[in-house]
Design a protein around this nucleic acid. Structure first.
Length: 865
RNA sequence: GCGGGCGUAGUCCAACGGUAGAGACAGAGGACUUAAAAUCCUUCCAGUGUGGGUUCGAAUCCCACCGCCCGCACCA
């Protein structure tokens, strides 16, 4: 009997699918029009780093299962693939190799495309594009111009990290301990005028619509809500007793105006205009500001930083109690870019304020007590939740017992009515700055003209192409120093002008690619007929790391595109359902070695470099004992990666796919183990054996399965369960069901040939979304001359899903004591009689009668004594 | 600190509030074999992190605690 040779079968069927164009999705305007319901399944497109990793295998295996199952179930499926191809790694590689980012990127794409194709994915490759293709970024530039026209863009000043040696702007992650990652030079803050998408205009809409995203994980919805960070509060002007530095008031923002009675000081940010002004004449304040700036760079410092402050000598009048004055402090914990950069401190109801007050001996006064208590605050601030009931001192924010939420609302109304403050709704969300001072991104299509100002490039001149003749051998942006590129005529007046040399954030590229896939060659950003047919994406699959930025930006972009006519207003939520898959993990292998300096450090080994000896001890090639470390996410630094290409070469793509979908629920982490992979491969061989044996037994026999044998019942139950499990993303359970069916087939006597054939064919069809190559090979072996990809999904016969007679457990006081066989449709009284008539139950009843008998039809009987 | 999630056999995981086991991995024994691999058969193993509560009945719902994971965080 022959073994299944994945190495032969997989390329064969991949070619057969491609030759027949099985996965190419027709345009809506194509002749004959596809009237099937649509289904758009999309996995987050990869960055072309050069090689696929196991995370890709898992992500794309899941998407492929959905795509193939939906296709078999009668949907017109759109399942495209592309490349998120702009970004810094390409520039870094170009610097290292003295090459060009495009060369590196497109070579990586070629390599990764081959690797993905070896996975046998049901992808419409005719729609492939990379975001660095001029055809793509031309349309992105067109969108930019339309957004500019629709007032969805603005220009304002923003602070960037500037590397004075490399003469470049650094992303936050490129700043290590306050120094540039390459140059190691201290990073400077610089103010640059940059482009921003006005995403904050949509803050409320983006927040409210989260409630409609019921196909999204709750976790992601919570993260988006927190990111938008809506709060209701009030801005209160505190009048300075003596105007200082030309300022008469300090505006404070608070979400807890109900605590205003307990205010005992004002704290302003070191960056507050008043602090800045004071530091010009006061050297102590200047020194304090300098200290804060130094301490404030690293996150670690922020976390540990002690709450410190310095008095300004100024004071303000309490707006509600004009006879009270409050001192003004500068506090290192007050952030300039949140609220107004100034807060009032209420030590009684804020732990941070209390710490500060105790340290600098400032008064502490309660604004409220818990009902029935009136103990003053000691070392711990009294901070009840807003829904808890409190009693306000002096009825400050409410009579009698009231919740803080009511107190807050009452105070805002009361203060607004008296002109003491302005109620405000604020969002944590900031406008999205997209200007990047880099080469490898989509150029921002505007020209700076001395006479006309900022002039949009004309659409007919798009794309504003990146020049090819650039070098990375010198610091700075190659676009900036290119001899001719930026020198252009003004599109408006024709005079000499300068092209903008900033490029767009790569998040822009990924914020609309899902729409572009609907008509990837259109000469406008979208073709309305196509996007209206395909959007929204019915199922989006990717990593949780994109839970906030990418998904929020895409939601914004869809709205902006709808506003500018590129999408239907019905498509403002681009992803109907989202699934976030878990990571792929592996054991780590390490050994502690001493360096020449005598320092001990751990050296990590790849799974290939270690093996177990006869005693089961892990050793490296030289025989040294290796420590097996924790199972963690595959990463280059811990060297615990498994190369998908090697796995596919050794076991085949189907085995890799099958194992990735087995055992662990898709949203959880999955551990890659050698044993697990071998087990998956064994199962595929076992299925193949069953297929060839069945084909031999059938020997061409024709006919239809009839009757209600156990095998047929098992078969149809498997159809039912696997169909449900795939639809609900329970791939691990679908796999378990298929194992169960496999066991049933191999244990059957095989006398009912037609039932056997039905079972094996169903097995193949159910496995097909996960192991498509094996399915095709098996299908052909069973004598079919059509392909599985052209075969409809099997349908479960409802009659075979139910039993006539069922076994019901009988409990006495919650403990199982007997089993009875009853008719499945028997009514409660019949079941109750049967249960009480059981010998074991009779014995326990001991002649008495039960207090109560609970019959759950089809489930259980419980007798209460 | 705030928010979310997870704790079930040696391991990964199942179980509409209703018989704790679908499935896999590993282990043990056996069959086949000159032997091994492959294959097949049989089989061992937990009472669900801990403590309460609700219920006829709790892995499942509620409360508290313990442990692990993931977000967010001087957010006023």
């Amino acid at each position: 009997m022959s073994r299944y040779e994945a190495g032969v079968a997989e390329p064969k069927w991949q070619k057969a699918w491609t030759d027949k164009g099985c996965f190419e999705t027709a345009d809506i305007e194509s002749p004959g029009g596809d009237t099937r319901p649509k289904y758009y399944v999309l996995e987050m497109f990869p960055y072309p780093s050069g090689r696929i990793h196991m995370g890709h295998v898992r992500n794309y295996a899941m998407g492929d299962v959905v795509a193939r199952a939906k296709s078999a179930q009668g949907f017109a499926v759109l399942h495209p693939m592309g490349w998120d191809a702009f970004g810094m790694p390409a520039e870094n590689a170009a610097m290292e190799r003295n090459s060009h980012p495009a060369k590196w990127t497109y070579a990586n794409i070629d390599a990764m495309r081959e690797q993905l194709k070896a996975m046998g994915l049901a992808i419409d490759w005719s729609r492939e594009f990379a975001t660095c293709d001029p055809e793509y970024y031309a349309q992105q530039q067109a969108l930019f111009l339309d957004f500019l026209d629709a007032d969805l863009l603005t220009r304002k000043s923003a602070t960037v990290n500037w590397d004075p040696v490399d003469m470049t702007v650094l992303a936050n992650e490129q700043v290590v301990d306050g120094r540039g990652w390459r140059s190691n030079a201290p990073v400077e803050k610089r103010e640059l005028t940059q482009w921003f998408f006005r995403i904050t205009d949509f803050a409320e809409e983006l927040l409210e619509a989260i409630d409609t995203l019921d196909g999204w994980p709750e976790k992601v919805r919570v993260m988006q809500r927190n990111w938008i960070g809506k709060s209701r509060g009030i801005e209160i002007p505190f009048a300075l007793t003596d105007a200082a530095q030309g300022m008469e008031v300090v505006e404070c923002y608070t979400t807890r105006p109900d605590t205003l009675r307990g205010a005992s000081f004002i704290a302003i940010s070191p960056e507050h205009p008043l602090s800045v002004a004071l530091s010009e004449t006061d050297t102590t304040i200047a020194a304090f500001r300098d200290e804060c700036r130094l301490a404030g760079t690293s996150e670690e410092a922020l976390e540990k930083a002690e709450k410190r402050g310095i008095g300004t000598g100024l004071s303000v009048v309490h707006p509600v109690y004009p006879d009270r004055t409050l001192p003004v402090w500068i506090g290192n914990f007050v952030l300039m870019d949140y609220g107004t950069g100034a807060v009032f401190g209420c030590p009684a109801h804020d732990q941070r304020d209390l710490d500060f007050a105790r340290k600098y001996e400032l008064p502490v006064a309660n604004a409220f007590h818990m009902p029935g208590e009136s103990v003053d605050v000691g070392d711990e601030a009294l901070v009840p939740t807003k829904s808890e009931t409190v009693v306000y001192v002096d009825h400050f924010a409410g009579l009698g017992e009231t919740t803080s939420a009511e107190g807050i609302d009452a105070t805002i109304d009361w203060m607004e009515a008296r002109g003491l403050g302005t109620g405000q709704v604020r969002y944590r969300l900031r406008d999205w700055g997209i200007s990047r001072q880099r080469y490898w991104g989509a150029p921002i299509p505007v020209v700076h003209c001395d006479a006309c100002g900022i002039v949009p490039e004309k659409k007919e001149n798009l794309p504003v192409r990146l020049p090819d003749d650039v070098t990375f051998d010198r610091p700075g942006n190659p676009l900036e120093r290119h001899a001719t590129w930026k020198h252009v005529a003004c599109p408006a007046c024709g005079m000499d002008a300068t092209r903008e040399t900033d490029t767009m954030d790569t998040f822009v590229d990924s914020s609309w690619y899902f729409a572009r896939f609907c008509s990837p060659r259109a000469t406008t950003p979208t073709n309305r007929a196509e996007v209206d047919r395909w959007l929204p994406v019915d199922q989006y699959i990717g990593g949780i790391e994109h839970a906030i930025l990418h998904l929020l930006y895409s939601r914004f972009f869809a709205r902006a595109m709808a506003k500018t006519g590129h999408l239907s207003p019905e498509s403002v939520e681009p992803f109907k359902a989202l699934f976030t898959q878990g990571m792929v993990t592996h054991e780590t292998y390490s050994r502690t070695v001493k360096t020449n300096e005598g320092v001990e450090r751990d050296v990590f080994f790849t799974p290939d470099e270690v093996s177990r000896d006869e005693e089961g001890v892990m050793r490296d090639a030289s025989g040294e004992v290796i420590t097996v470390g924790p199972t963690i996410k595959m990463s280059k630094s811990k060297r615990n990666t498994i190369d998908p290409e090697a796995i596919i070469a050794r076991f085949g793509a189907d085995t890799a796919r099958w194992f990735m979908l087995s055992d662990s629920p898709p949203e959880r982490d999955v551990e890659w183990t050698e044993a697990g992979a071998e087990g998956a491969a064994r199962h595929l061989q076992r299925v193949w054996r069953l297929v060839t044996e069945t084909a031999a037994k059938l020997n061409g026999a024709q006919g239809t399965a009839t009757g209600a044998s156990d095998l047929r019942k098992t078969t149809h139950r498997a159809i039912h369960a696997v169909t449900d499990d795939i639809a609900a993303f329970r791939f691990n359970k679908a796999v378990a069901q298929i194992y169960g069916l496999t066991n049933a087939v191999s244990q059957t006597d095989g006398k009912d040939l037609m039932a056997l054939r039905e079972a094996v064919e169903v097995l193949i069809l159910l496995m097909a979304p996960m192991t498509p190559h094996l399915a095709e090979e098996a299908w052909a072996a069973l004598g079919h001359d059509t392909m599985v990809v052209e075969t409809p999904w099997p349908k479960a016969d409802p009659a075979l899903l139910v039993d006539d007679q069922i076994t019901m457990p009988v409990q006495v006081n919650g403990k199982k004591r007997a089993e009875i066989r009853v008719d499945a449709k028997a009514d409660k009284t019949v079941v109750e009689e049967a249960a009480l008539a059981d010998d074991a139950i009779q014995k326990l009843l001991d002649g008495g009668s039960p207090k109560k008998v609970i019959v759950v039809p089809g489930r259980i009987v419980n007798v209460v004594l």
